[in-house]
């Protein structure tokens, strides 16, 4: 048998979730989330292992994973900054923030810093429009952003490393 890449924790989490759905295929999204939480991104081998676990064709997992923007099919930096530039955020300066972040990190939107510390992405509406501009820093929202608070946040992450 092939060596498993996903941890026992992954399989335990899926076993917990399995009885909650009448169809095993419903585990696809939760399993992709769980696997990404472990690996930071979703390499093909992981997708193949998930397909085997759930019992679907590998292609089906790939179809699903590529549909949703949150699944990283390429490696991302340790801190993934996803800055919303949709209407409400853009009305309150998101574009300027993006320019600032690009300059500060020395990468273009969509890129990862050479040391793998940061990935900067543009995000569609994050659903926190009344506290715009907003970005996601890994799993957390940072709201009411301005250039100062973004600068402070990036500095803080750099120092924590």
């Amino acid at each position: 048998m092939k060596e498993r890449l996903l941890s026992e924790k992954f399989y335990e989490a899926m076993r917990q979730k399995e009885p909650r759905y009448p169809d095993r295929k419903a585990l696809i999204l939760p399993s992709l989330h769980q696997a990404q939480a472990e690996f930071g991104w979703l390499p093909k081998e992981i997708l193949a292992e998930i397909a085997e676990y759930i019992g679907v064709h590998e292609a089906q997992i790939r179809e699903v994973a590529s549909f949703y923007t949150m699944y990283n099919l390429k490696p991302v930096g340790k801190m993934h900054l996803k800055l919303c530039t949709n209407v409400a955020c853009c009305l309150r300066g998101a574009n300027e923030l993006m320019e600032f972040a690009e300059k500060k990190l020395g990468v273009k939107c969509g890129e990862t810093t050479p040391d793998g510390a940061f990935t900067l992405s543009e995000e569609e509406c994050l659903g926190a429009c009344t506290t715009a501009p907003v970005m996601m820093a890994n799993d957390d929202y940072i709201e009411n952003l301005d250039i100062n608070s973004m600068n402070d946040f990036i500095e803080k992450v750099k120092h924590e490393r």
């Binding site: 679907v56 292609a59 089906q60 590529s66 549909f67």
Partner: peptide, 10 residues
Amino acid sequence: GIHEMVAIKR
């Protein structure tokens, strides 16, 4: 009966 042609991305 085979899911070999797929739609990738969106």
